[in-house]
Structure formats: C-alpha cells, structure tokens
Design a protein around this nucleic acid. Sequence first.
DNA 1: ATAATGACTGAAT
DNA 2: AATTCAGCCATTA
Length: 111
Amino acid sequence: MPSPPTPTFWHDVWALVRTIPPGRVTSYGTVGAMLGSPRLARAVGWALHALPPGTDVPWQRVINARGRISFRGDDIRGMEQELRLRAEGVEFGPDGAVDWSRFGWPARGGD
DNA sequence: ATAATGACTGAAT
DNA sequence: AATTCAGCCATTA
C-alpha cells in the first residue's frame, strides 16, 4: 500500500512521523525502514528539511540513529528540538543522547 | 539523463 | 574518540 513513487514520498514521511506518540523518538533510518528501506534515511531527512513552518508534523521526534541530534550547521534548530523533546517528557543522557530503549519508538511490548 | 547535494548510517582510518 | 570515506535514496539544477 504505501509504495507510491516519489512525489508522495514526503507525504508518507510526514504521515508516519505524525503517528509518533508524544514522549517518544525515532530515527531517520527507522522511518525509512517503515517506508520501504532503512537506507531512505537521507531522503527522510530531506523530507523533514522541506517541512514548512507551522506544520503539524512532530519532526522534532525524529533524530539520528544514535539518539542524538545531528543537524549540520543549524545548531539553533537542534537546540530547539532538544528543548521540545524535553517538554514532551524525553530525557537526555549525559552525552545529550536519548535512552532508545526507554523513549525509542515504536515502544517495546513490555514496559 | 547526468551530476551534485543533504536534518543519515556504518565501517575504516 | 574524532574524522574521513563510501553507500544509499530522493530532490534539484
């Protein structure tokens, strides 16, 4: 079902990101994997980069595979994202890394 | 159609 | 541990 060509790619990414519950975080690779391939990470990042301001997509809940914010250069956005995640209830470790097994999404069955 | 870029990822140096 | 190289996919020129 979700496997249309490219133009709708962004739409799929945003739709998936919208399904991320608050207090949870996921990685570009995970989102890409849900869309078809874990290597879509770059395309996913590109899709979020194209997000308009005032969007309803919680792009802040999407971070890199290490549970950290990477961005390249836009540190302002990165700090904003961290603050937003904290407001959602996400805790950052000593390195500023998120506990994937605790706030990662999809959430583990147990808990 | 080809080349270059990018909010990624993993392995190599 | 930090930096660099290379692979992958979608978008833009």
